[in-house]
Nucleic acid binder design. Sequence first.
DNA 1: TGTTAAATTGTAATAAGTACAAATTAGTAA
DNA 2: TTACTAATTTGTACTTATTACAATTTAACA
Lengths: 137, 137
Amino acid sequence: MEKYVKILKENNIKITSPRLVILKYLSENLSHPTADQIYTDLKTNNPSLSKTTVYNSLETLEQHGIIQSITISGSELHYDLNRGMHHHFYCKKCGRIYDIPLSCPNIEKMSNYGHKIEEVHGYIKGICKECLKKGRI
Amino acid sequence: MEKYVKILKENNIKITSPRLVILKYLSENLSHPTADQIYTDLKTNNPSLSKTTVYNSLETLEQHGIIQSITISGSELHYDLNRGMHHHFYCKKCGRIYDIPLSCPNIEKMSNYGHKIEEVHGYIKGICKECLKKGRI
DNA sequence: TGTTAAATTGTAATAAGTACAAATTAGTAA
DNA sequence: TTACTAATTTGTACTTATTACAATTTAACA
Ligand SMILES: [Mn+2]
Ligand SMILES: [Mn+2]
Ligand SMILES: [Zn+2]
Ligand SMILES: [Zn+2]
């Protein structure tokens, strides 16, 4: 837990219990959970946790670049620890989100349009290999 | 309007007035509008148009690959005519979405993970040049 | 240990999108 | 042309992710 305290301190964010458990959760769950999944999972061991707090904490962590929100699904945000550029694959059948460990070779070119770039997301969609295996096409 | 009739016919979609005006609208508005923007703009000249129909028509057009939904904003879908791969820039200040005419050089590599790829989206986020110009940083 | 600004909590509100049933219509066949 | 039918449109009600807000609690600091 000291690890997470340190991260918050480095970012000048107040050390609070919700922030610590959410950060710990995201560090141990790289499956890109939604706010609701995080809330439901943490609620059992943290009965006083409020869903609003989950949303607030996620926003704070994201503003400091500690985590990232993923808009790939179109219906709700998914969250990911911010650890180096990688792409995401979204399965239209089962909804799972897979990491694709590629970085974007285009970033330099992207800077030529006059916009200030803060985030780069590479999203791929289709049917995942698990669903293909099950023949659900 | 014959142009749009042709597109629907080629895709074996019934020719209906809502589908035609929505397709025409998206062809003439490459600003990546939301369903609500499309509905509001078309409603004035098409008073019987229902918002549900806008959603239904957009879904049909997307299923046939004529248009694409863009999940870049995270709060609502934006729509774009499907005309060749390009990336999108989302301004966190003003919400505008800009086209970035780059294709993805990674697509081959992406196929190496066993998933069936159907869509590739490149999203960049930051502050657009218009907002930078206005000094709103 | 006391103070205070910031964070948490619970509830109510918002807004994008979907479900559904009744009315309408496009496409086809007589 | 007309009649038929399945598909589409429409309006309304509903769902669900997210936000607003006010009261309560707490972290940080003096
Ligand atoms: Mn990831
Ligand atoms: Mn575009
Ligand atoms: Zn899958
Ligand atoms: Zn802007």
